[in-house]
Amino acid sequence: MSEIEDQIAALPDRSLLLLDDDQALRTRLGRALETRGFEVTTAESVAEASQHLRQAAPAFAVLDMRLEDGNGLKIVEDLRARREDARIIMLTGYGAIATAVAAVKAGAVDYLQKPADADDVVKALLATGEAPEPPENPMSADRVRWEHIQRVYELCDHNVSETARRLGMHRRTLQRILAKRAPK
């Protein structure tokens, strides 16, 4: 057994809620967490996760941020209300600083970008007060800029002119940026 598996085995409560609407990721990550020793319950929607929370509040949770029927932050708040000591990790394919801040303010202990490796998820779940290690593959400066533009664009209800005004850039420049794919 590895050191991490020993840590998990020593936990008094290994219950974990995994909420993600991507079935392939939910299945793969759920199996990986089970093999490491967690007792995993999966959910594919906010409604299903809320139903699981009414039955029992898990000690750990790995939650997707954006789901078809709502936002994973609602589950963070519901779980915090039922169990203050729960360790919650947020996952998202939309890695923006504003969403990370919202997740941590709601009560998540960490925020990981999809696709998250099971080992990274376990490290985040088991991390104590010390600062987390820097990511292996941090976002490039171009990607951070693109994410910020996308977030402002979303907050402006996809209004290009208003987004350009708020970002202090020309509308056509913004249109060209929005038409391109996200940088790596």
Results as ranks from 00 to 15, higher is better:
56 A>R: 15
90 M>L: 12
31 R>C: 07
173 T>C: 06
38 F>P: 01
54 R>G: 09
73 L>N: 00
164 A>F: 02
73 L>F: 14
10 A>S: 08
170 H>P: 01
55 Q>R: 14
8 I>P: 02
85 D>S: 14
181 R>N: 10
97 I>R: 14
32 A>T: 07
142 D>I: 01
154 E>Y: 12
87 R>P: 00
144 V>K: 13
165 R>S: 13
138 P>T: 11
132 P>H: 12
137 N>F: 13
106 A>W: 05
83 R>V: 11
108 A>S: 09
8 I>C: 04
174 L>I: 06
68 E>W: 01
53 L>F: 05
92 T>G: 12
111 Y>E: 01
77 E>V: 11
26 R>Q: 11
17 L>P: 05
69 D>W: 06
15 S>L: 01
167 L>P: 04
182 A>S: 14
136 E>N: 06
21 D>I: 09
18 L>I: 03
62 V>D: 05
142 D>Y: 02
5 E>I: 04
101 V>T: 15
48 E>G: 03
74 K>I: 05
97 I>Q: 13
178 L>N: 06
171 R>D: 04
29 L>D: 03
135 P>A: 15
47 A>H: 06
119 D>V: 07
72 G>A: 05
9 A>D: 08
68 E>F: 00
86 A>F: 10
124 A>W: 02
81 A>E: 11
67 L>A: 10
90 M>V: 12
61 A>N: 07
126 L>A: 09
134 P>T: 08
12 P>Q: 10
73 L>P: 00
118 A>Q: 00
129 G>W: 05
176 R>N: 14
89 I>A: 11
60 F>Q: 02
18 L>A: 06
20 D>K: 04
151 R>Q: 15
101 V>A: 13
30 G>I: 03
165 R>F: 11
98 A>R: 15
168 G>K: 09
76 V>C: 08
125 L>I: 09
61 A>M: 05
91 L>G: 05
148 H>Q: 13
14 R>M: 11
130 E>G: 12
118 A>R: 09
85 D>E: 14
47 A>K: 10
10 A>I: 00
182 A>I: 00
139 M>H: 05
37 G>I: 04
18 L>M: 10
132 P>T: 07
78 D>Y: 02
106 A>V: 03
96 A>D: 14
41 T>G: 04
32 A>E: 11
88 I>S: 05
177 I>C: 07
